[in-house]
Design a protein around this nucleic acid. Structure first.
Lengths: 136, 136
DNA sequence: TTAAATGCAAAAAATTTGCAGACGT
DNA sequence: ACGTCTGCAAATTTTTTGCATTTAA
């Protein structure tokens, strides 16, 4: 597992405390909204500005360090980009869990896209329902 | 194909001109953002308010008449709810096309969700890439 | 040293709310 | 006629921008 400073520098970005904090938080939670991140970073670095969080998320998305997870009926969450996977999204609490794509091979998706002459670059599979905790 | 007035009444909603227009537009385009809808309804019913579009989209989502299609890096689009299908999302122009889920059986997704004790209620498969038109 | 990044405050954009009047049933 | 829905204007929330100052390399 690559450390965050390296990851940032490889992407042509300075390894600031703010950016490292954002990555640590995302590493910890897996998926967070902008506000989640802002509130949490604040606990350590009280002076961080919300504008800085916005600017950094945007920059990290552009550089491909993060991926956006857009959610129906909620604000988007963000995650550190990794190989394709499936999201299990709880409609009650909004939690997001990951599952492997093992059961759904990439070629299968590529083939579907080809039917429409569509060049596939990225897949998002989101399964909405109720998580273990919320069904009590 | 059920007509829109019926559809609305069955959902316990009055069939207003505004709502019928919204449904017609979505029927025509397949997928539209709030602003797309607002601008287009306006051409016929110049007096419609943006607030009315917001309120109606929310109401129609609640009643299950519409579904939200949340998109990475863009505003959500909305569609008339139909059986599960795959979205091909163009990263250049933002267009959304539908494809059938034939190749990916429901049970397969249900099984993936079960691994996490997750009760599946709805699936969204979004394939991002470049559409036929945009790769010219 | 110096280009890039931060934090602030202000601006802009997006969404929500409350309510008087209009409309569908 | 009645309760729902609309349109407006105002309020709120979210996101973006510009710029002076700070900071990583």
């Amino acid at each position: 597992m690559k450390n965050h400073s390296e990851l940032l520098r490889e992407s042509g970005l300075k390894a600031t405390i703010q950016r490292l904090s954002i990555l640590e938080i995302l590493q910890g939670t897996g998926h967070s909204t902008i506000d989640d991140i802002y509130v949490t970073v604040r606990e350590k670095h009280a002076s961080i500005s919300l504008a800085t969080v916005y600017k950094n998320i945007e920059m990290l998305l552009e550089k491909g360090v993060l991926a956006e997870v857009p959610l129906a009926g909620r604000k988007s969450k963000y995650e550190i980009k990794k190989h394709d996977h499936i999201h299990l999204i709880c409609q009650v609490c909004g939690s997001v869990e990951d599952e492997t794509m093992d059961a759904i091979p990439q070629e299968q998706l590529t083939r579907i896209a080809q039917k429409d002459d569509f060049i596939l670059s990225q897949s998002q599979i989101n399964l909405y329902g109720i998580c273990r905790n919320c069904r009590q």
